[in-house]
């Protein structure tokens, strides 16, 4: 029996040199670690331990490693993940998140030396078609393309629509958009003109100097006095409107209207 035992240890160590390294590395446990309060007496060399008494089963908790904070884990993204990164990015995540949200669905792979090598060589290759200037770009594009930008203009004073009007309207709904990134339609829009009220057009916003996104805009004629104010319309942003410029009709149709 003793021979068998030694033999099997030998076999296990022979399985793979990696295994041995692995076992040495893993000192961390994830469980209760206990200690005998009263250790049993020493037994004969090579013999069996004496029959244990009840006091030898009294344990003290050394550590409960389940409640210990685990270290972050590194994974390599195998595809673009919105808000996280591009293909081949090594990201450091909480182990639970990494396992459940990235490794199981196949969005990422383990950061093994082989995988690191594999995805490193991929970086030199031409970029995959689905790569963005920042991981947050798809989210911003989504937000902007779903937006119906209401541009409030005077109903009484004459005006000409300019860039800063659009920038201000963006700021009013929470988007800080620099003027140089906004592209207005080439035609001039002047008012007050109540026929514009039932029309819409789009402006183009450039994100990070790379990605373009079209934003649906509608002009609202605003007045101070109650008599001059236009009547209130429920859910006016859900209502489909006519395009102001016929050449924009195609793109406006594609833009999603808020539900």
């Amino acid at each position: 029996m003793v021979n068998y035992y030694l033999f099997s240890i030998f076999v296990i160590e022979m399985v793979d040199s990696k295994l041995f390294v692995m076992v040495v590395e893993m000192n961390e446990n994830n469980t209760f670690i206990l200690k005998r309060k009263w250790p049993p007496p020493l037994h004969k060399k090579g013999g069996k331990p004496d029959k244990m008494k009840s006091r030898h089963f009294v344990y003290d908790l050394v550590e409960d490693t389940n409640v210990k904070k685990q270290q972050d884990m590194k994974v390599i993204l195998s595809q673009f993940v919105d808000g996280v990164g591009n293909v081949g990015d090594v990201v450091s995540l909480r182990p639970n998140t990494a396992y459940r949200k990235f490794l199981l669905p196949g969005l990422a792979v383990y950061a093994t030396p082989e995988n690191l090598e594999k995805y490193k060589s991929d970086e030199n290759k031409p970029k995959v078609e689905k790569s963005y200037s920042s991981p947050y770009v798809p989210r911003t594009i989504g937000c902007l393309s779903r937006l119906v930008l209401q541009i409030s203009m005077s109903k009484t004073t004459p005006w000409k629509l300019e860039l800063w009007h659009i920038r201000t309207s963006f700021r009013k709904v929470g988007f800080v958009v620099p003027e140089e990134t906004i592209t207005m339609p080439p035609q001039e829009i002047q008012g007050p003109d109540l026929s514009l009220q039932e029309k819409e057009f789009y402006v183009t916003v450039k994100i990070n100097n790379r990605e373009d996104v079209n934003v649906r805009c509608r002009i609202y004629h605003w007045a101070t006095t109650a008599l001059e104010k236009l009547p209130w319309v429920a859910f006016h942003w859900k209502k489909p409107l006519e395009p102001l410029f016929p050449e924009q009709a195609e793109i406006l149709e594609k833009l999603p209207l808020p539900e």
Partner: peptide, 23 residues
Amino acid sequence: VTDRTIKLINDHYGFDHYLLKTP
């Protein structure tokens, strides 16, 4: 599973590696 299992799987870089390497 337990937390320890998940940790072992992650340390071995995958479930199959964990099973195959562990006696």
